[in-house]
C-alpha cells in the first residue's frame, strides 16, 4: 500500500519548549532552520507523520533564531490537543509562510492600532516584537485577566486589555465597547485579528468613524 505524502516537502522542526500561559493556552517554540517569513504571516503545522495540519500565526519575531506559535487548546480539536503534550525533541512538520497580514514601510509611519481578540494577538505580537520603532496601541479583547498573554512584552501604556467577564483589565467590556467610547483617529492604520464577528463589529465602527478602507487590515481566526 502506498501512503500518500504531503504535496510540498514540509520542513521538519524539533520542539524546543512548550510554555504554558494558562490552563488552555501555550506557546510552542521550535527550530527555525532557514525558514523566512514576514511578521504577521502564518504557517501550517502538524505532528511529523500525521496527516492533520492547522494554520497558526507566527508569534515570534523576525530576528529570533527560533519559531513560536500561540495555541489555544480546542476542546474537540485534534491538533491543538496533541501540541499541548509535546516534549522537547518531538518533531513537527511545518509549511509556509502564508498570508498578507503584514505592514509595509509606508504604514509604519502611521500610528498603528492592533485590535485583537484572544489568541488573535499572535501575529500582532510578532509585528510588534519585529519592529522596535513602531508607534502602536494594542487593544486586546479577552474574557479574563489570565488571557493577557505576555502583556509585559508591550511597553507600558501601549497595551490595553478589554476584559469582558471581569473588571480586572484596563477596561471592563469588549473591544467594541472601548472603541465606541474612544476618539477614533482616521489617519491611523488598523490591524484587526480574531473571530469574524468581532472583526465585523470593529469594521463597522471604524468605517462609521470615517477610517478609509485601505487603512483597515483584517485576519480572521477560525
Amino acid at each position: 500500500m502506498s501512503v500518500a505524502k504531503t504535496s510540498i516537502k514540509a520542513k521538519i522542526a524539533k520542539v524546543l519548549s512548550v510554555r504554558h500561559l494558562n490552563d488552555s493556552t501555550f506557546v510552542v517554540r521550535f527550530e527555525r532552520g532557514d525558514f523566512q517569513f514576514e511578521p504577521g504571516q502564518y504557517l501550517a503545522l502538524g505532528l511529523k507523520g500525521k496527516i492533520q495540519k492547522r494554520e497558526y500565526s507566527i508569534y515570534s519575531a523576525r530576528e529570533d533564531d527560533f519559531l513560536e506559535i500561540l495555541v489555544k487548546e480546542v476542546l474537540d480539536g485534534d491538533v491543538s490537543k496533541r501540541l499541548k503534550t509535546l516534549n522537547p525533541g518531538d518533531e513537527l512538520e511545518v509549511q509556509g509562510p502564508f498570508g498578507y497580514f503584514t505592514i509595509d514601510e509606508k504604514k509604519k509611519e502611521k500610528h498603528i492600532y492592533f485590535i485583537a481578540s484572544g489568541t488573535g494577538i499572535s501575529p500582532c505580537h510578532s509585528l510588534v516584537m519585529s519592529n522596535a520603532d513602531l508607534k502602536f496601541t494594542m487593544l486586546h479583547g479577552v474574557r479574563t485577566a489570565d488571557e493577557r498573554y505576555d502583556m509585559m512584552d508591550y511597553s507600558k501604556g501601549n497595551y490595553v486589555a478589554c476584559t469582558s467577564r471581569e473588571g480586572t483589565g484596563d477596561f471592563y467590556g469588549r473591544v467594541t465597547d472601548y472603541l465606541n467610547k474612544a476618539n477614533i483617529k482616521t489617519d491611523a492604520a488598523y490591524y484587526i485579528c480574531g473571530n469574524s464577528n468581532m472583526i465585523y463589529d470593529v469594521f463597522d465602527i471604524l468605517k462609521g468613524a470615517g477610517v478609509p478602507q485601505d487603512q483597515i487590515h483584517t485576519e480572521v481566526y477560525f
Partner: peptide, 20 residues
C-alpha cells in the same frame, strides 16, 4: 480531505497524490 484519507487508506489498495 485528510480525515477521509485516513479512512480511504484502509479501503483502497493505492492512495496517491498526483505528484506521485
Amino acid at each position: 480531505l485528510p480525515s477521509d484519507k485516513e479512512k480511504f487508506l484502509k479501503l483502497f489498495d493505492i492512495v496517491f497524490q498526483m505528484s506521485e
